[in-house]
Design a protein around this nucleic acid. Structure first.
Lengths: 175, 175
DNA sequence: TTATGGTGAATGCATTTGCATGTTTATATG
DNA sequence: CATATAAACATGCAAATGCATTCACCATAA
């Protein structure tokens, strides 16, 4: 989990061509404009803030003796999937994980008893993953700590309007 | 770089105590309230979107044959530091990296010829890091690709007002 | 001055990730 | 049907990260 950025210093490299001889008048589409200083600053801040928040939350979980966030995420997805469970490739899509990383994350979850790995009856290549009773219990035990971390480092610092605006803006960044 | 979250399903666990017997009237401080669904949704979206963006940008850099983002960040910090360079612990603070991770990142940068590592004259334990000519050249070569990635995946999807709002909201999340 | 504790940085070892490839089964095509 | 291609998952090996510890030097105070 590396991240972070700072590239103000390089902004001067930009802003030469299309902007100089503005072919578009006031309605130049942003796709043709260059990055503004504000764009760069917002990008840098997004990367840095999200990294910091993740570190803070993960630190809190670890301090309480819990496994890292991806375990929580995977178990929650499996819980939400209900009785039918999920195929590994489905879980992989939902978690944005590389195939080999998911394969090994599941290894660890199975080894720890939080997930059951069954052969798929419908596809001879495939498996079905189900959360176990212990997995559900882990989710329940982790949530108060996780929740407190989100509250302390994130939610508490923003008011309702800011939460709503942030959600809307981030929503535009999903493709 | 793992990340991502999904915990809607667990929101029901919360919302029992302080909210039920509201001691604070309409002005209950948020620090005592519980997390709302909107809080949780915004948190999940922040984590997921920032992870996706980072993956997209890093993928673009890698596809163009460039090293990963932390190399860029480190070199940019050193460039911005000017002739005096930076002590490793200073670079570490700016990059939010663990000490041992910085130590090894610098190893790689030095081995690749982008950074010079000199003994500090003022502190016998310390070093001075300076960007080399090759390091500056790498920054210049990487920036067009980096810039295009930020533009395509981030800046192009938001208008000026959204960029400003996002920056302001994220600013409140720095401590 | 010499103990003592603290700071800056490196490193051995275990865990995790990345990358390429392998294995098995499913699907498409002639 | 036979064969080729693709999908689902695993795995060997290299690189990166996390953790604990170590080493060297600095600062301070008896």
């Amino acid at each position: 989990m590396h991240l972070h950025v700072y590239m103000y210093a390089n902004a001067f490299i930009v802003n030469v061509d299309a902007t100089a001889l503005n072919l578009y008048g006031a309605h130049m589409p942003k796709s043709v404009e260059n990055l503004s200083d504000d764009d760069i600053a917002a990008w840098a801040r997004l990367v840095r803030v999200s990294q910091t928040l993740l570190m803070q939350v993960e630190t809190g979980l670890k301090a309480a003796g819990f496994p890292p966030l991806p375990w929580y995420d995977a178990l929650l997805e499996l819980k939400r999937a209900g009785a039918g469970g999920l195929r590994p490739f489905q879980l992989q899509e939902r978690m944005l994980l590389a195939q080999y990383n998911l394969s090994r994350l599941v290894d660890r979850l199975v080894a720890s008893g939080y997930v059951a790995r069954l052969p798929s009856t419908e596809d001879g290549r495939g498996q079905i993953l189900n959360i176990t009773k212990e997995g559900r219990a882990l989710l329940r035990r982790m949530w108060p700590t996780y929740r407190a971390e989100i509250q302390a480092h994130f939610a508490e610092r923003l008011n309702k309007r800011e939460i709503r605006d942030l959600g809307n803006i981030l929503g535009k960044l999903r493709e």
